[in-house]
Structures are given as structure tokens and as C-alpha cells.
Nucleic acid binder design. Structure first.
Length: 216
DNA sequence: CTTTGGATCGTCT
DNA sequence: GACGATCCAAAGG
């Protein structure tokens, strides 16, 4: 599985700028047996910390969100709806609590292990289609909250295998929010079948991402 | 394809 | 005590 790790400095940019650059990168989880599970990132959402009412970090540090307030290049994993795990890449300058939520992957390797972890996913397309599905498929859980993606010995890595991000990533509103509903900080690879379905009315389209600060 | 309702519990007010 | 950065199955077009 070729590809090089990205240095910590790479994660230091603003979430809104980094999110589209994460598209087409590889998310790799090393399994104890020596095998691994890999998916290509095809859908993400940016969350801008204290500036963003939709961010878990909007109201300041808490026990749950403390990892976001630390250095970039770590994983923020949270427990959702009493039964799911979702994973974010922490980015931005330390203390800004910015993060990029990983929403969907195109499975690349370790498909058998993914299927074992997701009994009931009938189609390959559904293995990693959704933020909680992808953590389940790759075996990411609360035990990985705070994991360092940059260190050589890490269990979880983000790799650049030379596939460039889309020239024109699609973008649109983020999914599942009750605030900042119009802010178009969800980014995905256009036409990719592994992107999760949008729920909440309106379709995303190709357009320019809004400037950094939310309009409201 | 779409809509609807239930599951389930940590987190923060 | 209320509310989720969700998923799934079931039912209807």
C-alpha cells in the first residue's frame, strides 16, 4: 500500500481549506494480524471550532471535545446517538479546535475485514458510506480518540498515494445539523458512488465554498 | 427511489 | 432531563 504520511504541519491549515484537500487521500488502519484496512476519502465536512455554532467545540473545551483543542494531526472520535462512533481529523493552529469529519470512503483494501465488521452491508458501496459506517468498517472506536495520525508507529494513518484531490470538489450544506444549516462546508468527490446520501432537503452542487467565517 | 419511526446512552444544561 | 455531526428496517410510490 504505497503512500507517504503527511507531516504535522500539513494539518495546520484552516479546516475549510484542508477539508477538500483530504479528498482522495487514503485512510489506513493497521490490524493486529499484520493486515490492514484502507479506504479512499471521498466525503468530508469542515467544522470551525469557536466560530462555528455547529461544532462540538463551539462552547469551549469539555471532557468530550478536549482532543480538538490540542495539536493538529490527531483523531477526534466521539460517540453519537448512543450507538455510533464518528471520526474527525483535528487541524488548524492548536487551541482553535478545528476539525474535519470523515463522512465516507471508497474501500480500497481489507474488504473482507470490513465485511466482517459490517454484517448487513449487502453492497460494497455501503461498507464505508456514512461517518458511523466507516468507523465500524475500519474498526475505529472511542479507544482511538486522540490517536496521533503522524507518528510512524501509529495504528491509523492518512496517506498521500499521489492521487490528487478533485480539481473542482463538490460542496454543499453539512448533514444532520439544526444550526448553521446553510453553510456549505460538506465536500465530496463529484460523481463518486460511495458518497453518502444527503438528508435534509436540497441537493449539493459544484460551487465555490463560502469564505471562512459563517455568514450568520 | 422516498419517508418514517425506533434504537440507545454519553454529554452538557 | 433533553438532545444529538446516525443507521436501519419497514412501508409506500
Amino acid at each position: 500500500m504505497g503512500g507517504r504520511r503527511l507531516p504535522r504541519s500539513w494539518y495546520g491549515g484552516e479546516a475549510v481549506e484542508l477539508a477538500p484537500l483530504l479528498l482522495n487521500k487514503l485512510l489506513v488502519v493497521r490490524d493486529p494480524g499484520g493486515g490492514g484496512r484502507t479506504g479512499r476519502i471521498v466525503e468530508v465536512e469542515a467544522y470551525a471550532g469557536a466560530l462555528d455554532p455547529a461544532s462540538h467545540a463551539y462552547r469551549g473545551p469539555t471532557r468530550r471535545n478536549r482532543v480538538m483543542f490540542g495539536p493538529p494531526g490527531h483523531l477526534y472520535v466521539y460517540f453519537s446517538y448512543g450507538m455510533h462512533w464518528c471520526a474527525n481529523v483535528v487541524c488548524g493552529p492548536p487551541g482553535r479546535a478545528q476539525a474535519v469529519l470523515l463522512r465516507a470512503l471508497a474501500p480500497v483494501s481489507g474488504l473482507a475485514a470490513m465485511r466482517d465488521a459490517r454484517v448487513g452491508a449487502s453492497r460494497e458501496r455501503d461498507l464505508c458510506r456514512g461517518p458511523a459506517r466507516l468507523t465500524q468498517a475500519l474498526g475505529i472506536s472511542g479507544a482511538d480518540d486522540g490517536a496521533d495520525l503522524v507518528s510512524r508507529s501509529a495504528r491509523i494513518h492518512v496517506l498521500d498515494d499521489g492521487v490528487a484531490p478533485p480539481d473542482e470538489p463538490a460542496c454543499g450544506p453539512r448533514v444532520g445539523l439544526s444550526v448553521a444549516v446553510e453553510v456549505p462546508w460538506r465536500f465530496w468527490v463529484p460523481e463518486d458512488p460511495h458518497v453518502s446520501p444527503f438528508r435534509g432537503g436540497g441537493r449539493g452542487r459544484r460551487r465555490e465554498a463560502a469564505p471562512f467565517a459563517p455568514a450568520g
